[in-house]
């Protein structure tokens, strides 16, 4: 399969900022390098600059003066998308409605003036890879959303691009299909070894697909790291709250540990901390006050299927979230004793 990709490309952005004509600053100056064969996910809420970054790499937008885009060691800043030899997949699929599935997949080959018989072979190969051979002669308006996205991927990969750019490719699909395609895209990207840049606002997608994730907000990079780093060592309050759920307690460091209104946490790190953060899965419920670090009262309880999610009032400004057993959860109004795994504690 890796023969499908000529030679993985490394991409480098140097001082790339983007200001739109109406004066909107979409992207602050950004330096970024993507190594060959890496899958990089740009993650953030809408308007954070992730799509602008992708469009700069694609050549659909030009960076403000001074910004440069390199493919390997070649400066491609002034090249348009036509000359960058990248494959692009859009949220809206952007399939040509006047062509069949096979014609869509073969479009790039036709532009490259590949001989007809070779085109046929390549089209069949791509349709087989995406498991849509049966749809070859269908019109686009006869396809479901998931099928359209497979066609879009097949079309983008048919020309054996140097890199694959995906702009929220799964956002328009329903949850079940999204999960299934996410797994499939992940396997596809691993087997192809193609350099991929993937834009999404869905953190689960980012975690599952990315070798590295760039979390962005308001046109700035908040953090760059592997999914594990981003999740366990968030670099800013924004990242901490954007990725997964996060509990927050205010208090002071005392000789006993981190003391807050609900109790005292095992905190042996040096330095001052005014607030500590920890994830719901690092909280365990204990039966007696003897072993408890925190005490609270269950305010609300949500059955999630595989677990129960409790909101516990601990006298801080916001309740903390705790995961509980699915079958016999604590009742609302009940007093709750809790411990927090020391490794799960963070301060920012």
């Amino acid at each position: 399969m890796s023969a499908l990709v000529p030679q993985a490309l490394s991409i480098r952005l140097q001082g790339c900022a983007k200001t739109f004509r109406d004066g909107t600053r979409a992207l602050e100056s950004l330096d970024l390098s993507i190594s060959a064969g890496e899958t990089l996910v740009l993650l953030g809420p809408s308007g954070c600059g992730k799509t602008t970054t992708l469009r700069l790499i694609a050549g659909l937008e030009q960076p403000d003066a001074g910004g440069k885009v390199f493919f390997d060691d070649t400066d491609v800043t002034t090249l348009g998308i036509e000359a960058r030899k990248i494959g692009m997949v859009f949220q809206s699929y952007a399939l040509f409605p006047n062509m069949t599935v096979a014609q869509n997949v073969g479009y790039g080959l036709r532009i490259l003036k590949m001989p007809k018989t070779e085109q046929q072979v390549r089209i069949r190969e791509m349709l087989a890879m995406m498991r849509i051979e049966a749809l070859a002669d269908r019109r686009i308006d006869q396809l479901s959303g998931g099928q359209r996205q497979r066609v879009a991927l097949a079309r983008a990969l048919a020309v054996r691009p140097q890199a694959l750019l995906l702009d929220e490719p799964l956002t328009a699909l329903d949850a079940r299909l999204r999960d299934a395609l996410r797994v499939e895209i992940n396997q596809l990207l691993r087997s192809l070894g193609i350099t991929t840049i993937y834009v999404t606002h869905d953190q689960a997608e980012a975690m599952a697909l990315g070798d590295r994730i760039i979390v962005m907000s308001h046109g700035r990079v908040e953090q760059i790291g592997t999914p594990r780093e981003i999740y366990h060592q968030p670099g800013s309050a924004f990242v901490a709250n954007f990725i997964g759920s996060m509990n927050q307690l205010r208090g002071v460091v005392t000789p006993q540990g981190f003391t807050c209104s609900a109790g005292c946490l095992n905190w042996d790190r040096s330095g001052v901390a005014e607030r500590v953060l920890f994830r719901p899965e690092d909280v365990s419920i204990v039966t007696s006050s003897e072993f408890a670090e925190l005490t609270g009262v269950v305010k609300a309880s949500f059955f999630m299927g595989d677990h129960t999610r409790l909101l516990v009032d601990v006298g801080d400004e916001a309740p903390i979230t705790v995961l509980d057993d699915a079958r016999c959860p604590q009742a609302v109004g009940q007093k709750l004793y809790m411990r927090v795994a020391p490794l799960g504690l963070m301060s920012i």
Partner: peptide
């Protein structure tokens, strides 16, 4: 986006007019 997709395959203005805009 259709036009951008066509251009990503190296389509020139003429291709875009003929394959995307005219249809």
């Amino acid at each position: 986006k259709l036009e951008e997709a066509a251009r990503s395959f190296g389509a020139n203005t003429w291709h875009v007019v003929w394959d995307v805009i005219m249809p």
